[in-house]
Write a protein that binds this DNA or RNA. Structure first.
Lengths: 286, 286
DNA sequence: GAATGCCTTATTGTCTGACAATACACATAA
DNA sequence: TTATGTGTATTGTCAGACAATAAGGCATTC
């Protein structure tokens, strides 16, 4: 047996999900609309005919087949190609469509079932679950979701959510942080100030907010970090280059750091509120 | 093609996750006796020794093999049997241990990968991801998580979380609810009052809170409903039978309903805070 | 001695083909 | 009409094979 402790330092290769500019070489795939006629055999023949000269799937370069498939199907579901209640094409059909084995299809579908996007039964098929069951706070689902409506609305929803949780998370952090957690927060804050590039700065910024969530002492707040990451991804386009604004933002972050350090919950909460208000302003002014 | 609209009214059969006392009747484990002197190292011997006399799977009666397997392995991970960074036994090993095919193992593992509990690479194996990547807000993971520590701590964490989100959700609901959403809220509230059994009442109670989340108009709040469901599951043991308390709780709910109906955000928020304080009191007093 | 490159090997990834279990839909019977 | 059986389409499960990957050891070279 080989149950040795391992660092596991590799990031999940599944990370690159915001492959918006879809690689062009994907299946011709024209049966996007769920309502076709009933005859499966004829449809299959028709599809074969429609030029499966290019039988390749939407293979995301570095990823495995089932992962790519899960992304492709997941995106279609979240995007609304198959509304909740719809029965998906069956496994054999996917297999044919993407020229992959049924096993690969099944593994992809199992991943989507694990995210509550799908459920299935023998003789019925796989159907799309009601939207309220979807695990929108899952990293992948969120990424797919972020692509579908216009970014404006998505960003607004995420920001609103941040207003709900981040001030309270900071207040808890001020009460319960450990010294190590404080060190992480302070370091991220410092690195924000010293960042050479805007990208580097954004990364430190993200780390700062995630560290606060972790320091809150409530395990359930930690998974919400994916929202923050997503927010910063989509916020990047909005970030200002103006030095004054950057300095102002930095001061707001430092105020948060200070109040958590000095263990002042109410002040920390207010400091976060100010920062979020500032961010809202940036978004609005664009 | 058969992409007809379907009601999909079936609840996910995966629900029964608290099957702690494993059914004794398991896969008969074909010819092989558990201990083939084949080759596995001393570690394998050690594992055999750790108690499990019977290497068979914990088949959850109604569920599929891969689902049962995912539950079993997922529970073990969340419970801490394999700490983050640990490399799991390989697929062949699981397959042997539970007397199931490798495909079934793989599908189970894919489900856990989709929940960010695992990641894997060829030649390496599958390892447990760092805890902060775990999607604790996933329904299954939450259920596994709820079994491991003592319920007291879990319940406290969940309640704390509810304090963060529910008052704000109610405030948003007061501003943005549609008439249909209001009808759902009102109906659930009414059914709470008219419930014949305590169980029925709890169910209506859950519906009430979920309806408010949906009415908040923020899609990201909806998935947090799993927390509320979980809370009520674990709260059931605490619920009072005293008529006075029930009446009081009912009044608190009606106050929320009324303020959302009359579109008073601040009042709705405060009403929810009062209800939560009351719930906290119930928990503490036990 | 250190860096480089090749080889072996363990593990997941993928494919194929088969059969079992399920439950809808329809025909048949009471 | 209601109940019962039968056909059948779809997922569930299994078995066995080979491909792709990369860790770790070994030899070669500088």
């Amino acid at each position: 047996m080989n149950c040795a402790q391992r660092p596991a330092l590799r990031p999940n290769p599944l990370a690159a999900l915001d492959s918006l500019p879809k690689p062009d070489f994907l299946v011709p795939m024209r049966d996007a609309k769920p309502n076709k006629e009933k005859s499966p055999s004829k449809a299959a023949a028709a599809e074969r005919q429609t030029g499966v000269r290019r039988p390749d799937a939407a293979r995301i370069p570095g990823a495995s087949v089932h992962t790519s498939l899960a992304s492709e199907i997941g995106l279609r579901i979240v995007r609304g190609d198959y509304p909740p209640g719809t029965i998906l094409p069956n496994e054999a059909k996917w297999s044919e469509t993407f020229s992959v084995s049924r096993s690969a299809v099944r593994e992809a579908i199992k991943m989507l079932m694990a995210k509550s996007l799908l459920a299935s039964r023998p003789k019925i098929g796989s159907w799309v679950e009601p939207k309220e069951r979807w695990n929108l706070l899952d990293r992948d689902v969120l990424a797919w979701y972020a692509t579908s409506p216009d970014r404006e609305v998505f960003l607004k929803t995420v920001q609103e959510f941040r207003h709900i949780i981040e001030p309270e998370a900071a207040a808890f952090a001020a009460m319960r942080r450990t010294d190590e957690q404080m060190a992480e927060i302070s370091q991220a804050c410092r690195e924000m100030g010293e960042a050479a590039s805007l990208q580097e700065r954004t990364r430190a910024d993200t780390r700062f907010h995630l560290a606060i969530l972790r320091a809150s002492g409530n395990d359930l707040l930690v998974p919400l970090g994916v929202l923050i990451e997503s927010a910063f991804d989509h916020l990047f386009a909005f970030t200002t280059r103006a030095v004054d604004d950057l300095n102002h933002a930095q001061k707001l972050h430092e105020a948060i750091e200070k109040n958590i350090r000095l263990q002042r919950p109410d002040a920390a909460r207010n400091a976060v509120r100010k920062l979020l208000a500032n961010t809202d302003g940036v978004i609005r002014s664009r």
